[in-house]
Simulated scan of single mutants.
Amino acid sequence: MHFARTAALTAALTMGVAVASAAPATAVAPAAAATAPAPHKAIYQMTMVQSKQPGQIVNVSGRMYYEWRDGCDAWTTDQKFALDYVYAEQNSTRFNSHYTAWESKAGNDYSFAVKRTRDGELVEEYRGTAKRAKAGVGTAKYVKPEPESLDLPKDFFFPTSHTMSLIRKANEGQKIFNAQMFDGSDGEGAVEVNAVLGPRVDKDASAQIQSPLIEGPARKIRMAFWGADPNAALPEYEMTLTLHDNGVVSGMRIDYDDFSIQGRLTALDAMPAAKCSASK
């Protein structure tokens, strides 16, 4: 139950962070037409802001580290977080997660690795690759926790291209964006992400820093994430991001069935630009 929730924090930044219904955009090469994101590293303070079932989970708190780099022919992501869950009738628990990903700018190749621990013991590990065929469909191949192949739907997105398409669609005046997205943060394959693209805003009010990276244009993006069950009446969780045109997230809120958690930006630094040859 809580393992899926830690996966949702991974989704917060990799999905556009991690994204009602418009026709899905063609995902074969969306990144080329989108705003170029800014390589950066950031730290977020995670805090529970609402409990819908008092007496069970008393508090959730921790930190998230996020790093995004431009590798000339690919984008790379490195994300770590530690969360402490405090319960009313059982011992508190520390969850740690480490997620890394490599995404080709051509939009056809992707690799991922995820490790999650509970109180220092490994509880989940996913590792594998994904590839898009010329027809737009794809295949994800896991090597951990065990060899497995999953089909990915036509015109699906990888995480960075999804984020960049969100920004581009919002700047074109689109209000709603629906897409299938795969990031490898769990074993379920692609997820459906329904996004409402809100109006222009300043940086998130919760941000505790000043930085040129969050002084530029931003929007509130409200997303609902749907899993593999086609009969589900409600999304698995919802998320609100303050997403800047350069791809930086200056604040987030994730809403589950029984509690909500806020991510406040507490540190942000630009990463060096990649030194790419003219042939790249």
Rank of each mutant, 00 (worst) to 15 (best):
H2P: 05
F3R: 11
R5N: 12
L9H: 01
L9G: 01
T10Y: 07
A20N: 04
S21M: 12
S21Q: 11
S21G: 15
S21K: 13
A23C: 05
A23L: 06
T26A: 13
T26C: 14
A27M: 10
A27Y: 06
A27V: 02
V28I: 11
A32G: 08
T35M: 08
A36W: 03
K41D: 09
A42K: 06
Q45C: 00
Q45H: 13
M48D: 09
V49D: 15
Q53C: 08
Q53Y: 12
G55M: 11
V60Q: 09
R63L: 11
G71L: 05
A74W: 08
A74Q: 15
A74R: 15
W75E: 05
D78L: 07
D78C: 02
Q79W: 02
L83N: 04
D84E: 13
D84H: 00
A88V: 10
N91M: 08
T93H: 15
T93W: 11
T93L: 15
R94Y: 14
R94L: 11
F95K: 06
F95T: 07
S97T: 08
T100C: 06
A101W: 07
W102K: 13
E103A: 08
A106K: 01
A106R: 01
G107I: 01
A113F: 04
A113E: 14
K115L: 09
R116G: 06
R118N: 01
R118V: 00
D119G: 13
G120A: 12
R127K: 15
G128Y: 09
G128F: 03
V137S: 14
G138N: 10
G138W: 07
V143I: 13
E146A: 08
P147L: 09
L150H: 08
L152W: 12
F157A: 06
F157T: 02
T160K: 11
S161A: 14
T163E: 05
I167M: 06
I167S: 05
K169Y: 03
E172I: 02
G173M: 02
N178C: 01
N178E: 06
A179I: 00
D183N: 15
G184P: 03
G184R: 05
G184C: 04
G187C: 00
G187T: 03
G189E: 09
E192L: 04
V193N: 05
A195E: 08
P199S: 14
R200N: 13
V201W: 03
D202W: 10
S206D: 11
A207Q: 04
Q208I: 05
I209F: 03
Q210K: 13
S211P: 00
I214G: 00
G216H: 07
K220E: 13
R222N: 09
A224P: 09
W226I: 10
W226S: 10
D229E: 09
A233E: 12
A233F: 08
A233N: 14
A233I: 00
E238A: 10
E238K: 11
L241H: 02
G247N: 04
V248Y: 09
S250N: 09
M252P: 02
I254P: 03
D257Q: 04
D257S: 02
F259H: 15
F259I: 04
S260A: 04
Q262M: 12
R264I: 00
L265S: 12
L265R: 08
L265D: 11
A267P: 07
L268M: 14
P272K: 00
A273Q: 14
A274Y: 10
K275E: 14
S279Y: 09
K280L: 07
